[in-house]
């Protein structure tokens, strides 16, 4: 498969105006996105996601490194690169609220140079696809949040670019609309072969929609793996041990030393093992005071847990 986006060692530094303090927003971030792939770009707040997204969109010039979209450098060949990418960066704020649904679509299509004749069938198709046909003459400020979000995505789709970048596409949506948006995105990727990059905090969206994920923390890529692989990896190493009695302080100290990323929920100890054999070391700690064990289970893992674990591990290292 060919890469349509190449992010190659980008680094961006901000200098605080007053304190002259230097803040490294992203540092040596590299990854590639293949044609037709749905990629999840994740990270806690302030991790460097927005900087990465804006650099991909050519809205930010990196201090080092480069981004190419379909072979065009996002800074040096900006206008050519922009022919291959569209984005929803601020959700429903990307729209003109005192204009109707149709006027918004016409405006953004025209801004990409499309003629009235050329845009008409395209707009009709999108209104149908996003179930906004009945609302075409409605002012955007009269639409529900979900409809506004769908319209923002439709606006990004208008350009008919190879890549669509969505920043928090399901933020603030109710469960039903969130699901609808997810289905639309899935169909766009499958039927139209679009490459989609989703930046989100909504882990079920990632688990459900994305094939691969790039996780950024403290400005660095800490994971670049397929979602299935990450889930499998954590599924085999995560355990929940239910105890009948609490452990002693001495045992607690030993746990902290051997398994720094463990956590407690009442008498349930949750721990991730790097190697299967580590279970014996854990048993040794519990055996020291003959702590009675109720059950030992492999933890049901979801992507949220994987994400939290990866971020915690990175912070601990």
């Amino acid at each position: 498969m060919d890469s349509i986006i190449k992010v190659d060692g980008i680094r961006k530094i901000y200098k605080m105006r007053k304190t002259k303090e230097i803040f490294v927003a992203v540092d040596d971030v590299s990854f590639e996105v293949e044609k037709g792939e749905i990629l999840g770009l994740l990270g806690p707040n302030g991790a460097g996601k927005t900087t990465t997204i804006k650099t991909i969109c050519g809205l930010l010039v990196p201090d080092e490194g480069a981004v190419t979209i379909n072979g065009f450098d996002s800074v040096k060949k900006r206008n050519k690169a922009l022919r291959h990418i569209s984005a929803v960066l601020e959700g429903n704020r990307n729209l003109y609220w005192r204009m109707t649904v149709e006027e918004n679509l016409e405006y953004f299509a025209g801004n990409r140079g499309m003629s009235r004749k050329a845009m008409k069938p395209h707009i009709d198709k999108l209104l149908e696809q996003f179930r906004l046909k009945e609302k075409r003459q409605e002012l955007v400020n009269k639409l529900s949040r979900g409809m506004q979000q769908k319209l923002a995505i439709a606006v990004a789709m208008l350009a008919d670019t190879d890549v669509i970048l969505l920043d928090e596409p399901t933020l603030g949506l109710d469960v039903e609309t969130g699901y609808e948006v997810r289905e639309i995105l899935r169909s766009i990727a499958k039927k139209e072969g679009k490459t989609i990059i989703i930046s989100t905090h909504d882990m079920p969206v990632v688990q459900d929609l994305c094939e691969r994920t790039v996780i950024i923390n403290n400005g660095r890529v800490i994971a670049d793996e397929s979602v299935d692989h990450l889930l499998q990896l954590f599924k085999t190493s995560a355990y929940q041990i239910s105890l009948k009695e609490p452990i002693t302080d001495e045992q607690q100290e030993m746990l902290k030393f051997e398994f720094p990323l463990h956590s407690w929920k009442g008498l349930d100890l949750q721990v991730s093992l790097e190697e299967e054999q580590e279970i014996y070391a854990l048993m040794d700690i519990l055996k020291r005071n003959h702590t009675p064990i109720e059950t030992i289970n492999r933890t049901e893992i979801n992507f949220e847990k994987v994400f939290m674990q990866l971020v915690k591990e990175e912070a601990a290292s």
């Binding site: 804006k54 969109c57 809205l59 990418i85 960066l89 801004n111 990409r112 606006v155």
Partner: peptide, 8 residues
Amino acid sequence: EQLYMSPM
């Protein structure tokens, strides 16, 4: 930023 995303 949407205006800046136009290749025009």
